[in-house]
Design a protein around this nucleic acid. Structure first.
Length: 197
DNA sequence: GGAGCGATGTCCT
DNA sequence: GGACATCGCTCCG
């Protein structure tokens, strides 16, 4: 995969409603620099969280220390810990002062697959164990933790976490209900890349 | 492949 | 104290 630094998605891309940003993120590349290695996956599943108007959003109850990034400028990584064991990655959307974001739920692994398997603690030959499917597994495979990457500006070329557009055009996508939430369960804010390349 | 369940720690309603 | 944008394990069939 050849990747050019001027293919980084600009801040303006994220300065929109999360439900508009989310489907546009499908097919883009999530790139994690890890020491000398580079881990790359194509974004295949995301969910939009709308902020103050969305009871399921971390921004719903107002700004706190944990969710402050959601209220900050767009294009910044919001990483939080869930169930004491796992991490979830989001990118902030909408202008500074307005909460909202997109949750990364799955990738199609492209580069650094051996390292991803190592980080997951599974064999690279283990086809049954979904390497980068699910928000927790995705973060585990990409080496994403709150301590390291929360509040990382993903629009900067110097950043160790970036999203690039390599020109890939998805065939289409599916919109469904979001997964694993108790409030606002029926909104179609989960977006999945069309199967087959 | 799916239902049930326990693990685990941080953050507030 | 209770909730939590999850996962991996069992057991089932």
């Amino acid at each position: 995969v050849r990747i050019l630094s001027d293919n980084i998605l600009p801040r303006a891309f994220y300065n929109r409603r999360p439900d508009l940003v989310a489907p546009d993120m499908l097919g883009k590349l999530l790139i994690r620099r890890l020491g000398r290695r580079r881990l790359v996956g194509r974004i295949s599943e995301v969910e939009a969280y709308l902020g103050l108007e969305d009871p399921a959003s971390h921004g719903f109850a107002g700004k706190t220390e944990r969710n402050a990034v959601l209220f900050g400028p767009p294009g910044v990584a919001y990483v939080y810990q869930i169930y004491g064991l796992y991490h979830c990655l989001n990118v902030s959307c909408l202008p500074e002062g307005v909460a909202g974001g997109v949750l990364f739920r799955a990738l199609l692994p492209l580069e650094g697959i051996d390292k991803m398997a190592e980080l997951r603690g599974i064999a690279i030959t283990d086809q049954a164990n979904h390497l980068t499917e699910g928000p927790g597994r995705l973060c585990s495979a990409m080496g994403i933790t709150r301590e390291q990457l929360n509040n990382t500006d993903m629009t900067k070329p110097s950043s160790i976490l970036q999203i690039h557009d390599d020109g890939f055009v998805p065939r289409g996508f599916l919109a469904t209900k979001r997964i694993g939430i108790k409030k606002a369960q029926d909104l179609p804010l989960r977006f999945i890349l069309h199967k087959g390349v």
